[in-house]
């Protein structure tokens, strides 16, 4: 029972990390609280659902979901956010508006039914882990979360592009004055962050299903992860996702009526003592 809850918490944390890592990349580098991130999750998931259903390939679904979210990210950044650069409140309101528009658009295209991304046969069924049988697919999600963490960590800390992104997070004006077109780096980061939301949508859509309010639910969880972990911190997103995932899982079992409080109570307490989150740095 408790091992089952632990695994549930860990696998949900892995999904949360995938989504929240994209959120924190965009938040950290572009200083944009992208409230459309949940909508990108839902939209990417739905596009992935259609692609997977049409082709019968889960991988095609992932590619389509990530691609669609990345394209939406470009359109959002180049088409809308460029007009409100530097105005935080306007950015927040703009992305919130986009979230509503995308949510309605999804309702028009896919209807209000609950949809499940078809998972590949190899990942169906359960496997035995000690005393419990656990769904293979959720273990795959856990593995993917770890893989995404490792991949992002390598990108950020072992490549030149990653060093550019970190320099851009630290001081965009100075890196630009050193001859770097930081706008292009920003756009690439925005695309990557959006694609991660799309990836989360397809992956999550196969075990949590996709429904009209899935976008705001995942957004709230992602916000909690990023606020706990600290803006722009990959390790923070990882630790935050683990905390939120486990609190959610055990909270649902131990005090189901208070499951949300089990997450947001500790978050409020943490913020009282560390306003920038566990790994956050002052701007």
């Amino acid at each position: 029972m408790s091992l089952f809850s632990l695994l549930n918490g860990l696998t949900f944390a892995a999904l949360l990390f995938i989504v929240a890592s994209g959120f924190t990349l965009i938040f950290g580098l572009l200083r944009i609280v992208n409230l459309a991130h949940g909508a990108l999750y839902l939209f990417g998931g739905l596009v992935g659902y259609s692609a997977a259903a049409a082709t019968g390939s889960f991988l095609a679904g992932i590619a389509a979901g990530m691609g669609a979210a990345a394209l939406l990210g470009v359109a959002l950044d180049r088409g809308l956010l460029r007009f409100v650069r530097g105005f935080e409140l306007r950015q927040v309101l703009l992305t919130l508006g986009v979230a509503f528009v995308l949510n309605d658009l999804a309702l028009v295209i896919w209807g209000g039914d609950t949809l499940t991304v078809p998972m590949p046969e190899a990942l169906q069924g359960a496997m035995e882990i000690g005393p419990v049988f656990y769904p293979k697919y959720r273990l795959f999600v856990l593995g993917l979360g770890i893989f995404v963490f490792a991949g992002l960590w390598f990108l950020l800390h072992r490549t030149r592009l990653g060093a550019l992104i970190r320099a851009g997070v630290d001081d965009p004006e100075t890196i630009e004055a050193m001859g770097v077109d930081i706008r292009r780096v920003f756009l690439g980061t925005f695309m990557l962050g959006a694609a991660l939301a799309g990836l989360g949508g397809v992956i999550g859509g196969a075990f949590l299903t996709l429904y009209p309010s899935a976008d705001s639910e995942i957004l709230v969880f992602s916000l909690a992860v990023v606020i706990i972990g600290g803006r722009g911190s990959l390790v923070g997103a990882g630790v935050g996702a683990l905390l939120v995932g486990l609190l959610n899982s055990f909270g649902q079992v131990l005090f189901p009526e208070l499951a949300y409080f089990a997450i947001f109570g500790p978050m409020a307490l943490l913020l009282a003592f560390r306003p920038l989150g566990l790994f956050g740095k002052a701007a």
Partner: peptide
């Protein structure tokens, strides 16, 4: 205005391979 997240070497390699 150095970059706090970058090492000494990275300050240079980030601008030039």
């Amino acid at each position: 205005r150095l970059f706090p997240s970058l090492t000494v070497t990275e300050h240079l390699t980030v601008l030039k391979s």
